[in-house]
Design a protein around this nucleic acid. Sequence first.
RNA 1: GCGCCCAUAGCUCAGUUGGAUAGAGCGCUUGACUACGAAUCAAGAGGUCGGGUGUUCGAAUCACCCUGGGCGCACCA
Length: 567
Amino acid sequence: MASPRRGLPVRRGMKKPLEALLRDACERATKGGELLTTTLPPLLLTVPKEAEHGDLASNLALALARSEKRPPRAVAETIVRHLDDRDGILASVEIAGPGFINVRFAPAYWWKLLREIDAAGDAYGRSAIGVGRRVQIEFVSANPTGPLHVGHARGAVTGDALASLLAATGHEVAREYYVNDAGNQMAMLGASTYARYAELCGHDVPFPENGYQGDYVRDVAATIHASEGARWMDVDAAEARAYLGDAAGAILLEAIRDDVAALAIRFDRYVSERQLRAEGTVDTTLATLDAAGYVYDAEGARWFRSTAFGDDKDRPLVKTGGEFTYFAADVAYHRAKYGAGYDRIIDVWGADHHGHVPRMRAALAALGLDPARFEVVLVQIVNLIRGGEPVRMGKRSGDFVTLREVVAEVGADATRFFLLMRKSDAQLDFDLDLAKQRTAENPVFYVQYAHARVASIFRAAAAVGLDLDAAAAADPARLTEGEELALVRRLAQFPEIVEGAALELEPHRVVFFLMELAAEFHRYYNRSRILGDDRDLATARLLLAVNVQKTIRAGLTILGISAPDTM
RNA sequence: GCGCCCAUAGCUCAGUUGGAUAGAGCGCUUGACUACGAAUCAAGAGGUCGGGUGUUCGAAUCACCCUGGGCGCACCA
């Protein structure tokens, strides 16, 4: 991958010029004694929902009204009177409603923006707001004790899309998977595998209570049995369980790597809890906490005084049996992340772990690390829907729908799109029947079709001697329809959609933008013939179309979804 | 019991960080292919933003209290 620090276009956006005009106007008004304010509130320019409200609206006068001690409309009149549109980018300025300043841009402004968008090439939408910032994002991190299920898939896709968003905004991103390959769960995997293995060898070993009952444990045991025979029946049972647990964990982690790869996800690092322990990272972390005075012994266990940092109770670090808790190892891991010098550390967690956020923050603070650099994105549960009914999943019985099954059924693109359609902290209904449909009701195909449709237009254009080069050389001034200028306006919003999604860690914003852009393009296509008899008009429309296509492709790429030329 | 998340059209959800008459998609009704892909589009109907009080020019958005759902509260991770 190319260095994110280079080649990033400076974001122009459609708002910047208007912001400058408004600031200048206020400055002049203040100098002339017509405004009291010397410090402006942050300028908030919005794209109005109503077309009659213009291209951009400012609430500046409303925000200033109080300190000016004048009605908002009067303040707005003062500001508008001082507007100096030197470059002639404005077609109209109106004061509306309670005091909004509504602005409509001149067509020439949109033509200029379209040229800029075209000139940005495939880098369009990328920005430099994160340049020089190093971010580490940890996601999935499921125990290697079984295959990934759909809940994991949502965390996986969310984490991956967040990483892409941060990379697209110039951040240097590291993607990590924390492997809990130590502790009780792995011991239980070893015992479960041992029981299945023994069955295959003709021995009767009772299956452990709370063991992993899924059929996959039989498969794993069979794999080991096939390569190593029955020899682990001849050794001490504890040794056999330990070995089989390790072997099963390795096989299952390999399967997990395959599963995420099937969703087009890769990690830069897999960090092993066992290795952290072996390297003494957990010990030194506890010693640091102890030296800082936040560790005490009670009830036969060792505790962290997280209540000193606002947690509602203290948390155990070492169990009564002398084992580290999961928490202790996780604190050590996060301390190591800080040691690696990241500016921002992001974890994607299942919402059932939300209670862990305060204690992790407390531990970081106790270690003298800045908790503000640590952020957690909580991902809510996924309900699979088939035939209009929720698919039942029993975790205890091991009877859950795996990520692999979902991808096999609906494909990686639809899986990713559907799992990214909702804000991550809201529960999500995943309609498997809808995800499979190849119709307009299926939003992923709807968006992809808009992309393919442009490709199709260019195939037809080739027949009349028009191609990408012709489009690139087109005169956008031929685009005079309202729908055409509105499409440019939509395209112009893309960079700030990406920035907003990256800053707020909300990939679903990109999904919604793409659905709206696709809808706007489909509507335009149905109403306006692109390849008409007027050759100059046709090339101008091709210029618009190819930039719509490029923007859809850029958005889909951030989301990890393919942008096909034919469907 | 304490804490966190959620509640918006029949269904699934947006809502640009407090702005204008709350928006999409699905579903329902009615239409559009001798033209670049109808895998598309157009039109219509559909709302006490769970309820209440407050904050202010202005609240789906902020605060507090209810109601209803989800999830947490060491020796599982």
